[in-house]
């Protein structure tokens, strides 16, 4: 299988071509530097993204993020889990809102102080 995407390691934006066989990367072309090849390896097989969104606290909104990047394919599922949370107390930066989301070992934490 071949996958194509744009490298985002630096502003160059190289067009990468990745050959995948049995879920493993066998070749990367189109990159100008080794960092591009490394990016292509993860991006082709197990892409991850930091998730940032909001949670309701009373009438206000608290911004939150995942402490580590999460598997990209499940972002929608994590969004539903986060949107079902309603906070009743004030929150500080770094407070854990959801611990170990969906068994990933990654927490969803507040990125803002909000008094309610």
């Amino acid at each position: 299988m071949e996958k194509n995407f744009t490298c985002i390691v630096c502003p160059m934006g190289c067009s990468l071509k990745v050959q995948i066989e049995d879920g493993k990367v066998v070749s990367v072309t189109g990159n100008t530097c080794p960092r591009g090849a490394k990016y292509a390896q993860t991006e082709a097989v197990a892409p991850v993204r930091t998730l940032t969104t909001t949670v309701r606290a009373g009438e206000k909104m608290v911004s939150v993020k995942s402490t580590q990047p999460l598997p990209k394919e499940n972002l929608k599922k994590y969004m539903d889990m986060i949107n079902s949370v309603k906070l009743e107390t004030s929150v500080n930066v770094g407070d854990v809102i959801i611990a170990d989301i969906d068994g990933t070992g990654i927490d969803i934490v507040a990125t803002k102080n909000v008094d309610i």
């Binding site: 930091t50 940032t52 969104t53 939150v64 993020k65 990125t111 803002k112 102080n113």
Partner: peptide, 24 residues
């Protein structure tokens, strides 16, 4: 405060912050 996405602070703080965290 409304830029809740990450990507701030890589040059200044050498870590990837959200907008509210950078402000904080």
């Amino acid at each position: 405060q409304q830029c809740i996405h990450n990507g701030f602070g890589l040059h200044r703080f050498k870590e990837e912050l959200t907008g509210p965290e950078y402000s904080w």
